[in-house]
Structures are given as structure tokens and as C-alpha cells.
């Protein structure tokens, strides 16, 4: 185990995870107002469509694809046992990867060329978009150049990730990977690490609870029933607005 490898595949991941955890919690607690992705659709709506829609759907599929291969590698391997199924999986993943590339390039182009959008762009937005772009390009390159990634990811990289989470890092497999794959892994950890300092935080507040909520929301400053209940002393009954 040489130094750079253990630094990049053990030190970096742990540092990134720590930053992710502490940073995200701290950002939510101290700057909760800014936990969202600053939408610029108001300033420019048409070309945004061609960026954000392919980008988001692509990244959702690709992200959950990676997650599945990490969480249930055996199932993926079993699925890939049939060459046709493997082929279908790879082609699907690759198309969504392309969709990210198209979307992200459109987004970056829009961000750099539209004067109004530039007004609501900060340095972290650009760093993030560039890093994502590098990641996607690497990913597509890997998919083309180092075939059947869904299989070798499940068999070689999933154990590496598992070992990290188990607290007993085993980087033999990842250290032996070709360079593009190594860079892709490093890029992934960098993304995890800068997560709390970028617009990525909006993922954390994805409004899935909307599905279960009644449409109308009415708020009484006081819980009307509770303050009339003699068993609840008033100091326990907080007004709802604060």
C-alpha cells in the first residue's frame, strides 16, 4: 500500500464523509435559509429546459444505478449473467450518462453566456458544474473503454466501498484500477466533500413529503385544543408559528 493511494482512497474518502456530515448539518442549522438551489428560471426559462431536464433525469438514474450496484452487488451480477441483460443495462446507463453530458453542457453554456444568469452565479456553482462535467466525461470514457462496468463495479469497487464503511479499508482492487477509473473515484469523493458548500444541498430538502400532505395548510398560532385542555400546562404548549 503506497502513500498516494492510501491518501486518495482512504484519507480523502473519510475526510469527505466527515465534511459532508458536519458541513451539511451545520449548514442546515446555521444557514437554513440558504439550503436550496437558487433557481434562475425566472431570469431565463427556455434554454434552461434543454439543460436541466436531461441533466436531472440522467443524474437521477445514474446515481441510483451506482447506489444499487453498491448496495446489492450480487443481484446486479446475477442480472448481468445473461449477456443480453448486461447489454441492456449498459446501454441504458450509457444513454442516461449522455443525457447528463448534454444537459450539463447546456447548463454550463447558459450560465457562462447569459448575462442575467451570470448575476446569480457564484464561484461554487462553476466549480461544481466543472467537477460534474469532468465526472461525466470520465464516466462515459470508462463505460466505452473499460467494458461492462456494471459487473466490475459490483465485484471490485463495491467491496472497496463496503470496506470503507466497515472501517477496515481495503484498497487493493481500487489501487489496481486504470487511471480514468481512479480519477472518477477521486472525483466522486471530492463531490461528496464539497456537497455542503454548493447548491447540491437542495437534494437534502427534496419535497417528497408533499405526496403525503393534505393540499391545504392552515396554521393556528395556538393549538386550539391543547390550550383548552387543563392537563397541559401552558408553558408546554408552544404557539405553532415559532
Amino acid at each position: 500500500m503506497n502513500m498516494p493511494n492510501s491518501l486518495l482512497f482512504v484519507g480523502l474518502p473519510y475526510a469527505a464523509m466527515l465534511l459532508f456530515l458536519v458541513g451539511t448539518i451545520q449548514r442546515y442549522r446555521s444557514r437554513g435559509f440558504k439550503v436550496s438551489s437558487l433557481s434562475s428560471q425566472f431570469l431565463e426559462g427556455k434554454s434552461l429546459f434543454w439543460g436541466t431536464v436531461p441533466f436531472h433525469w440522467g443524474i437521477l438514474v445514474v446515481f441510483f444505478g451506482h447506489l444499487t450496484a453498491f448496495l446489492i452487488p450480487r443481484t446486479i451480477l446475477a442480472w448481468n449473467g445473461d449477456p443480453l441483460r448486461l447489454f441492456i443495462l449498459q446501454v441504458t446507463a450509457f444513454s442516461f450518462g449522455l443525457s447528463i453530458l448534454v444537459g450539463l453542457s447546456a447548463l454550463l453554456y447558459r450560465r457562462l453566456t447569459n448575462v442575467r444568469v451570470r448575476m446569480v452565479t457564484n464561484r461554487m456553482d462553476l466549480i461544481l458544474e466543472l467537477l460534474l462535467l469532468v465526472q461525466v466525461v470520465l464516466g462515459l470514457w470508462i463505460a466505452l473503454g473499460y467494458r461492462w462496468g456494471s459487473s466490475w463495479f459490483a465485484s471490485d469497487l463495491s467491496p472497496y466501498l463496503m470496506s470503507l464503511f466497515a472501517g477496515d479499508p481495503n484498497i487493493v482492487a481500487v489501487s489496481a484500477m486504470p487511471l480514468p477509473i481512479k480519477f472518477h473515484v477521486i472525483g466522486a469523493w471530492l463531490l461528496v466533500g464539497i456537497f455542503p458548500f454548493t447548491r447540491l444541498v437542495h437534494v437534502m430538502v427534496a419535497p417528497l413529503h408533499y405526496i403525503a400532505r393534505p393540499y391545504q395548510v392552515v396554521m393556528w398560532n395556538w393549538d386550539r385544543k391543547a390550550i383548552r385542555d387543563p392537563r397541559t400546562p401552558w408553558t408546554k404548549t408552544r404557539p405553532r408559528n415559532n
Binding site: Y210, V217, V218, M219, W220, N221
Partner: peptide, 10 residues
């Protein structure tokens, strides 16, 4: 509102 940020006061 997906976040449930908007409400009507009783």
C-alpha cells in the same frame, strides 16, 4: 407548494 411553506392563518 411542495415544501409546505405556504399556509393560511386560522
Amino acid at each position: 407548494c411542495p415544501s409546505g411553506a405556504i399556509y393560511k392563518r386560522g
